[in-house]
Design a protein around this nucleic acid. Structure first.
Length: 617
RNA sequence: GGCUCCGUAGCUUAAUGGAUAGAGCAUCUGACUACGGAUCAGAAGGUUAGAGGUUCGAGUCCUCUCGGAGUCACCA
């Protein structure tokens, strides 16, 4: 289907060349939808051409308008206001557009590019269940994947599971010491929550140990010796906590011992690790399933944490890295505005960024993508800038295709969520809660007649999750979000259910078409398109551009806001105009086709966000 | 302190450098003997943190100031 915007852009380019003898780029011609108070459908901004034209903006606009009206069949009329050329589009164009649209199941999709892109998201630790922050990460990753797919990329959805390290050993040790042989089955607790409880318990026990230790003579003398002038005992011990855990804590020593045993492949430790990680995976699987997301390929940190040694050698031989006297290896990025960065410790072990360098190389060898998207919170912005800069300097072929999709943290009104302090909004809990609220509201509104229990539950699930997902995904990724658990997620106004409801209305009409065998063939005779209908047509026309921009910007919120806008226009249309009891057969047919198109686009658009549409609600 | 990001109505937010800054929530007023009211219409609410600058045109770009966040580990 040819795009009206590009038709207009090309026509303006021709007009400018014909009238003023200057070449311009069609892509740079600014075409906006005309604001409500002016007559017209689309407006061309004329200011960029006034220098070339050597005329006043209005004179140039009128000239170009006259030319366009004569040359472009789609343009019915024009008017000029303050340097803006407002164009009116002919009814016949909208007829053709609507007919093509209603038959095009793939509207908004682009043909395959033959290019691959990897999207990595979620990357959880296996010591606790997923929380609301993970949900944001997952939804961004999932919907970016869907958006990239729809514009023609082959997408490989990956997850790196952080399944090893100190944090994982903490929950393991805690279960060994305090678990008394209990299991998720014996306690009847979802298995990832079970493991998470032992992580929290560890932190409690550790805190108790620290508080007791602070009363000792040793602690006292350390405080006397090391505290800064004017620093209170409380502040000092807050800062000292990491050092205490590494050097004085019994629990800390036991955790480190466990980590060493794990690294030495001690069979008992590995067995314990596998058992507890499997509990966590079972729980994650359930959560991912409930969220409606999946992955194509999993990577485990236990397999990748030793990667990157080769890259250190490579960097040294390419003189991108340098070695210090103590044997540690560094990269100097000060000329790019960053700092010097360690890539290998003096004891020869690798650090976090070394792993990421190695993983990037390995994955490229395996997947061969043109682009790699990492969905990771914005607290790691600096890390990814450095990572990408190093890969660029190493001359990696894919370095230009790396992208960090950085998103703001989800915070509570009281600040950041902290597992240790129990102020975490759990992923499973919030999903259940929002579905419960959907049920509550449905009951207040009155149940649908003759609905089965299973369909009812399925609808509530779609509505509840629709509300939650839309709430998260409508906000620009870069912005931090504050989530107030006291205020339940809204189901009215600018929400998922609002959009779902417009779809349900349309669905009701579509069923009537089938049941009553309504004839749509006369839609072409409808010539008096109403403003409410025009608004919908213009919006539908925009959809492919919206998806394309969302893909370019890695920004699902563009699609979310578009869907809301389209649904809003549909509700208004519904309220103002009659469909089944329209004034004429052609009007009825036209409105039904228009409704069908809106329904399709809404369903597809929301699908890109991972939101399902109920048939009834 | 250096670097990065953010600051739009009471709250949550939208606006590829283009016309009078657009929505939702909350508040107040109205609209169904029904193509489904999880809807629609209206009222009220803004010096786009502040000051300069670039431009025909700035919420958007540049400089400075203020406020908030993140980061600057031989942690991950």
């Amino acid at each position: 289907m040819s795009n009206l915007i590009s038709i207009l852009q090309n026509a303006v380019t021709q007009a400018v060349e014909h009238l003023y003898g200057e070449q311009t780029e069609p892509g740079k011609v600014l075409v906006n939808t005309t604001p409500p108070d002016f007559t017209g459908d689309y407006s061309i901004v004329i200011f960029p051409f006034v220098k070339i034209a050597k005329k006043t903006p209005d004179a140039a606009a009128a000239e170009i308008g006259e030319y366009l009206q004569g040359k472009v069949a789609e343009i019915k009329g024009y008017n000029v206001v303050k340097g803006f050329l407002n164009l009116e589009i002919a009814e016949s164009y909208w007829q053709v557009f609507l007919q093509a649209l209603v038959q095009d199941q793939n509207y908004g999709r682009r043909p395959a590019t033959g290019q691959k892109v990897m999207v990595e998201y979620s990357s959880p630790n296996t010591n606790k269940p997923l929380h609301l922050g993970h949900i944001r990460n997952i939804l961004l990753g999932w919907s970016c994947s869907k958006i990239l797919e729809s514009v023609g990329y082959e997408v490989v959805k990956t997850q790196i599971v952080n399944d090893r390290g100190v944090a994982i050993c903490k929950s393991m040790l805690s279960w060994v010491k305090f678990g008394a042989g209990k299991t998720p089955e014996s306690e009847g607790i979802k298995s990832d929550h079970f493991v998470g409880d032992y992580y929290v318990l560890f932190e409690q026990k550790s805190k108790e140990e620290y508080e007791t230790w602070q009363q000792t003579a040793l602690a006292n003398s350390i405080f006397e010796e090391k505290h800064k002038a004017g620093q209170s005992e409380k502040d000092f011990f807050k800062d000292f906590k990491n050092k205490w855990f590494n050097e004085y804590s019994t629990l800390g020593a036991e955790v480190r011992e466990m980590l060493l045993k794990w690294e030495a492949h001690d069979p008992d430790t590995i067995g314990l690790w596998k058992k507890m990680n499997n509990w966590v995976y079972q729980g994650f699987d359930k959560t991912y399933h409930d969220l409606g997301v999946s992955f194509d390929k999993l990577y485990y940190e236990s397999d990748t944490y030793l990667l990157g040694k080769d890259i250190v050698d490579e960097g040294l031989s390419k003189q991108v890295f340098f070695k210090k006297e103590d044997g540690s290896v560094w990269v100097d990025l000060t000329d790019a505005g960053y700092d010097q960065k360690v890539v290998l410790r003096s004891d020869g072990t690798s650090v976090y960024i070394t792993q990421d360098l190695g993983t990037a190389q390995m994955r490229h060898k395996e997947l061969g993508c043109e682009r790699y998207v990492y969905v990771v919170a914005d607290e790691q912005n600096y890390h990814f800038q450095v990572l990408f800069e190093i890969l660029k300097r190493l001359g990696e072929s894919y370095a230009g295709g790396l992208h960090h999709l950085s998103y703001g943290l989800v915070e509570l009104p009281t600040g950041r969520m902290k597992t240790r302090e129990g102020t975490v909004v759990d992923a499973d809990d919030i999903m259940a809660e929002v579905i419960r609220i959907a049920g509550e509201q449905a009951r207040e509104r009155g149940e649908i007649e003759g609905i089965s229990d299973t369909e009812r539950a399925e609808n509530l699930r779609k509505v509840g999750l629709g509300a939650l997902k839309f709430f998260i995904v409508k906000v620009h990724p870069k912005k931090k979000m504050i989530f107030n658990p006291e205020e339940s997620v809204d189901l009215q106004g600018q929400t998922g259910p609002y959009i779902q409801y417009s779809y349900v209305r349309i669905n009701g009409l579509m069923q009537r078409i089938d049941k009553e065998h309504i004839d749509l063939s006369k839609f072409g005779e409808y010539t008096s398109i109403q403003p409410q209908e025009k608004d919908l047509l213009v919006a539908l026309q925009e959809y492919p551009n919206v998806v394309w921009n969302a893909a370019k910007e890695y920004d699902p919120s563009l699609v979310a806001n578009f869907c809301y806008d389209l649904a809003k226009k549909y509700h208004r249309f519904w309220h103002d105009l009659q469909v089944l009891r329209a004034e004429s057969e052609p009007a009825k047919a036209f409105r039904l086709m228009l409704s069908k198109s809106v329904g399709q686009v809404l369903k597809n658009g929301m699908g890109l966000l991972g939101i399902e549409m109920p048939e009834r609600m």
